[in-house]
Structure formats: structure tokens, C-alpha cells
């Protein structure tokens, strides 16, 4: 019993000493918070990403190299839950994100060391205040609607790939997606689509897909075009009318006698 108590004390003392001294040593070695983040990011990377993207971001048969993807790509992919991918497939779907923003920043800091790429945009670049909705709409219809649908509801691509719905996407993620071109999406760098235009598009998408955006015509039917309208017309329009026709026809003199 005594031996056990001694052992416990000894363990507690060692642990306490280590806890007290170890960070101090680290700080002595390198004091900048950036390298700290890189260090933490490297650990997160080793656990969550390296099995597909390689231990140094060189890529493998299961995942592309991450050289030059930049912090914006990491912030988008991990922030929307797409990465780490749950399984290979035609396209990696959006899912619940389990990383905190601090962890994502650490991962981004580490992955940025592989090579320079677009950094996470500042808040003012995607702030909807003062954005031009009409310009955003025109640009969206020129560059985005052919895959994402006129109202950002998403659409099909070849072989099971798809352009996801933009409903519920944050302004930052919409902006980052244009900047980095995730998965099947083309890249829209600032040289092609200046920062102001990106902000207008972001504002347009947020406005069009907002859950509280007004629906002047009543139920939106998913804003998927005439297919859902036809379905509604047949089922609820003609369906109701045929049901009523049956009701009227059943009410004749003969049926009541």
C-alpha cells in the first residue's frame, strides 16, 4: 500500500514537473504563435489528412497533392465538413464539421507551408454591405447558374457528380469556393473575377437562398423549374379535380335512391 502511494506521488510529481517545464522549453525554442499553429496543424494533419494526401502533402492515389492549395481551400474543405472525406466516391459530400475554427486555422497554417496559395479572405471582402445585388445576379447567371441553377439550388454533373445546393452556405465559404474551385468547380481567381464582383455574387447567393427570403408567388416548390411545377399541377391540380369529379358524379339521383 505504501509503495503504491509513493508511486502515485512520484507519477504526479513527474507529470507536474513536465507540465510546468515542457511549454517553457518550447517557447524558448520558438516563440512565434505562427509556428505553434503550424506545429499543432501538423499533428492534426497527421491524424486526419495524411492517409490520403501523404505525410508531407505530396498526395497519393487516394488524394491530390496539397502544394499551393492555400489556406482558403483548407478553410473551405474542412469548414464545410467535406474534408476529411468519409469515403471515396464521385464527389465528397458536405457533412457536419467536427473541427473548431482554431483547429482549422492550425491545419491551414501547416498546409500553407507546402507552397503559397490563396489565403483566407478577410471579412470585409465578403461583407454584403454595399454589395450590388443586380451585378451579382448578372455575374451569377453568367458564371454559376449553368451548374448551380438560377437560384443556387444545385444541379447534376456527369457520372454522379453534382454542383451542390448553395442554401445555408456562409458568405465566407461561398467566397472561398470561388477563390479555390473545390472538387469539380472551376477556379475564379481575382484576375478573372475581381474581389468586388465576388462580393456581389456572394451577396446575391445569400439573398437568393436565405431561408427568410420572400416568396412573392407562394410556395417555392424548391425553385427547381418546371419539373416540380408539372408534378404539383398533376398531383394537386388535376388530382384534386378528378377527386371532385368523382364526388359530383357519385351524387346523382340513382346513387341516393
Amino acid at each position: 500500500m505504501a509503495a503504491l502511494v509513493v508511486l502515485l506521488f512520484a507519477l504526479a510529481a513527474t507529470g507536474g514537473l513536465y507540465a510546468a517545464l515542457a511549454p517553457a522549453e518550447k517557447a524558448k525554442a520558438d516563440s512565434s504563435s505562427q509556428s505553434l499553429a503550424i506545429e499543432e496543424g501538423k499533428k492534426l494533419y497527421a491524424v486526419g489528412c495524411s492517409s490520403c494526401h501523404g505525410t508531407g502533402g505530396e498526395g497519393s492515389s487516394d488524394g491530390p497533392p496539397l502544394t499551393g492549395v492555400g489556406a482558403a481551400a483548407v478553410d473551405f474543405q474542412v469548414g464545410t465538413g467535406r474534408m476529411p472525406a468519409q469515403q471515396p466516391g464521385a464527389q465528397v459530400p458536405k457533412k457536419k464539421n467536427i473541427y473548431s475554427q482554431a483547429e482549422i486555422d492550425q491545419l491551414a497554417a501547416y498546409i500553407s507551408t507546402f507552397g503559397p496559395g490563396p489565403s483566407v479572405p478577410s471579412e470585409k471582402s465578403y461583407d454584403s454591405k454595399g454589395a450590388n445585388l443586380a451585378n451579382g445576379g448578372e455575374l451569377f447567371r453568367t458564371n454559376c447558374a449553368q451548374c448551380h441553377n438560377f437560384n443556387g439550388q444545385g444541379g447534376a454533373l456527369t457520372d454522379g457528380k453534382y454542383a451542390p445546393s448553395l442554401e445555408g452556405s456562409s458568405a465566407k465559404h461561398i467566397y472561398e469556393a470561388m477563390l479555390t474551385g473545390p472538387q469539380n468547380m472551376p477556379v475564379f481567381p481575382d484576375t478573372l473575377l475581381p474581389e468586388d464582383d465576388k462580393r456581389d455574387i456572394t451577396a446575391f447567393v445569400r439573398n437568393a437562398t436565405a431561408s427568410d427570403s420572400p416568396n412573392p408567388g407562394g410556395l417555392s416548390l424548391g425553385r427547381l423549374g418546371p419539373v416540380t411545377e408539372g408534378l404539383f399541377g398533376w398531383i394537386f391540380g388535376l388530382g384534386a379535380l378528378i377527386a371532385l369529379a368523382c364526388w359530383i358524379a357519385a351524387r346523382n339521383a340513382k346513387a341516393r335512391s
Partner: peptide, 9 residues
């Protein structure tokens, strides 16, 4: 052009 460009049923 937009996707979901279908005619009426």
C-alpha cells in the same frame, strides 16, 4: 443559361 432548364411538362 441555368441548369434545371426544362419546358413545361
Amino acid at each position: 443559361v441555368s441548369t434545371d432548364a426544362q419546358p413545361d411538362w
